[in-house]
Each structure stands twice: as structure tokens, then as C-alpha cells.
Computed example of a mutant assay.
Amino acid sequence: MLTIGKREASGGAASGGDHRPQVAVAEREGVLVCVLSGIWTTRTVAFVDAEMRKIEARKGFAAIALDLSAIEKMDTAGAWLIHRLVSTNEGRGVEVRISGSSDAADILLGAVREAVRGDRSAAERTPPNIVIRALEAVGRRVFEMRDDFLSAMNILGATIRGAQLKLGRGHAVNPAAIFNQIDRMGVGAIPVVVLMSAIVGAIVAQQGAYQLSYFGADIFVVDLVGVLILRELGVLLTAIMIAGRSGSAITAEIGSMKMREEVDALTVIGLNPIGVLVFPRLVALVIALPCLAIIANFAALGGGIAAAWLYSGITPAAFLERLRVAIDLSTIFAGLIKAPFMALIIGVIASVEGMKVGGSAESLGLHVTASVVKAIFVVIILDGLFAMFYAAINF
């Protein structure tokens, strides 16, 4: 709240003492003369607000003259009351004359006038139609995608180029950090990966057997489960679970370090934050995800064997015998080839979102959510691109 004294408001000397704001009104030859006096501040303007509103409602004069020379003190609340009187009369076409104010008072009244005008223009601004808003949203997303891509290439390039723990010192990578991350992201994820894959494999087998039984082709459920799990679902489900489990953890860890300025501290002491924080996690993901995909394939096939045995009476021996005919090495490698690329995508996206975290817990939560959503989306897109590529080369 800006406050100016009488010397600044009117240019005269302060008379001392606290006085309530007063307005002396007289009409001379069609001009309404208002002499304002006293202290016009937040604590006192309530005493004169009703009288000022009565003056605003008066009509029948061609001009209004405001004399501010007797004001002892004024802040933005008093200036707003004066501005309200001025703007009301100007809106009716009445000429307003202000006298007795100093440069400081003029600046204060001008600031209040600009603030009120800005609020009014913002309120009167009509929102764009739905087409413009949709195009604007698309444009913003495109620019965000560009920024994310550049950040991802920066992290990936710095990881591939350097992979040092210290800037310019050629320090070797710490294997303990990589094995620690493999233990957390790989070994720790085995139970949930096995459980989810076994359930999905059983569901695919049960639904396939149910549909194929109408054609007397129950045995072909083995082909369905084997090809679908080994080429697509095994690695895709594993990548999605790792994106939700490990990708969010990477974003949360790096983001919390960014919030506590630990990332900046690493740079200050001469360490490369990407080499220290990102590189071990990327290497661990590239190693762990293919291994988890293999485990997921076995678990899903196990679930498929159990469901086929219980639902269609196909024994495990018959299932395995038919599986040998249905698949070959290309089926297995078609799925496993995708795993390292998906791991890189998950790790890079998680690291980018972690580096973008601001200084609040809300920012951390938003970027963790964005990390999981973006990673899953890009992983699915990558799986579709691989499918089209395999079809093009007849693999």
C-alpha cells in the first residue's frame, strides 16, 4: 500500500493531527466544486465512502472541480475513491478538473487509473472460440515436444559421449552404482513382472481357447499365446510396468535432488550430474529390461500352459510340443530386440522430467505423472513402429 503525506499530496505543509476525510460540496455556475480534506487512507476512507457515492449519483452539472490541496495524507485506497468519482462522471460526459495535487499525487492517481483500466480490459476481453483454443493447445504441445526432444538428445548425447563421473578428468564409471540400480530396477521388479505376465498369459490363453473352440481348433491357442507373448505382449507389458515403477522412481529421485539443489552442488564441485545421476540408471535399465522381458515371457507362457490345461485339456507336454512348431528364433528375437530401445526411452524421458522439476512438491508430482504418461505413450508408439518395420522386412 503506497501512502503519501500532505506535502506530497498537495505540495503544502502538513498541519498535523489526524482528521477524518471530508468533502465540502458547492455548485457554482453549473460547476460542482468538491474540496477534499483530511486523511484519505485505508483506515479512514470508510467514513467518506457513502458521501462520495452520493456525489457520484448527482446530476445536472456540466463540470466537476476537485480540489486536493487540503488532503493531509492519501494512499491507494483514497486514490481509488477519487478515481471512482472521476471515472463515473467522465462516463457521463462530465468534464473533470483536478487541482491542488502534486506530482506524487498525480503518479498515485495515474497508477490506480492504469490498474483499474487493466482489470476492466481483462474482464471485458472475450475468450477465443473453441477452434482457436484447440489450435493454441496443439501449438503449445508441439513446442513442449520440441523442448523435450532437445533435452532428451542432450542427456543421451552427454551420456554416450562422456559417461565420466567428473568433468574432464576421465574418471572411470563406478560399477557399484550400476549394480545397485540393476538390483533396484531389475531384481526388485521380478515379483510384479512375473505376477502380471502370468495373469495376462492365462487370460490370453483362456479367451483364445474360448473363441477357437467354436471351430474345433483348440490346439491353435498355443500358436496364439506363443506368437503374441513372445513378439508383442511380453516386452510391451514389461516396459509399461518398468515405466510406471522405475521411470517414476528415477523422476522422483532426480527431481527431489533438483529441488534441494543437489544437482547444482554436483556441478559446483566439478562433477557431471548426467554422469553421476543419469548414466548408471540408463545402463541399469538397458541391462535389466531385456532380462525382465525374458522372465516375463516364461511367466506368461506358464500362465498360458496352466489356462490351456485347465480350460481346454491341453497338457503341458502337448502345449510345448506345439509351441516348438509355432515359433522359431525370429519370434523370440523380434520381441527382445525392442527391449533395449524401450529401456533407453524410459530412462531418458524419466531423466528429462526429473531435471525439469522446480522448487515445489506440486512440480515434483506433475513431472512424475508426466514421466510415466509420456514413457508409456512413446513405448507403445515405438512398439507399433517396430511392428511396421518387421512387416516391411518380413521378419
Rank of each mutant, 00 (worst) to 15 (best):
P128N: 01
T331M: 13
A26I: 03
R146F: 14
E232M: 11
S363M: 01
I314N: 09
G244Q: 06
Y390D: 12
F215G: 11
R117Q: 02
G313Q: 09
G157H: 05
G304N: 04
D106R: 12
A77D: 01
L320F: 09
R281E: 12
M145D: 01
S256P: 02
A284N: 09
I242F: 12
T331W: 11
L66V: 08
A299W: 06
E29M: 10
S10T: 05
I39W: 13
V352Q: 06
L135T: 10
G157E: 02
T42H: 10
A26Y: 04
Q22V: 12
E261Q: 15
A293G: 15
L165N: 05
V379R: 02
N394R: 13
A296C: 13
G17W: 06
V268D: 03
D67K: 09
A339Q: 01
A317I: 08
A300S: 09
G60E: 13
V278R: 13
V142P: 00
L228W: 08
V48T: 05
L292H: 03
V25W: 05
L81C: 14
G170T: 02
N272D: 14
E29H: 15
I393L: 10
R133K: 14
G208S: 04
A9V: 11
A137P: 04
L230I: 14
A77M: 10
L36Y: 06
E261I: 02
G201N: 13
D223F: 08
L236M: 13
I98M: 15
A13D: 11
E72K: 01
S351I: 00
Q207S: 07
G118V: 11
L236V: 11
V283W: 00
V94I: 14
V204K: 06
R231C: 09
A205V: 12
I229P: 00
V48A: 15
V138Y: 03
E262I: 01
A137V: 08
G186D: 00
L109G: 09
A387F: 10
L344A: 11
A284V: 08
V48Y: 00
A288R: 06
H171P: 06
A198R: 11
A300T: 04
V33D: 15
V348F: 00
G118K: 14
E136D: 13
A134G: 13
L301H: 05
C34S: 00
G38S: 15
E353M: 09
G226P: 05
P127E: 13
L81E: 12
T42L: 10
R84Y: 00
I82E: 00
I345Y: 06
I250Y: 09
I332T: 12
L66K: 02
A343T: 05
S351T: 04
A375V: 09
G118C: 10
A252R: 02
R97D: 07
I294E: 01
I393P: 15
A296K: 01
A105S: 05
A202V: 10
V86G: 00
A115H: 08
F149A: 08
R140A: 14
S246H: 00
M74F: 15
I132M: 06
D148K: 00
V286A: 11
I182N: 04
I295Y: 12
D264V: 04
S102F: 07
R146W: 07
T369H: 03
S360D: 08
S351D: 07
A137N: 08
S213T: 15
V173H: 08
R161I: 13
A306L: 09
A308R: 07
D75C: 08
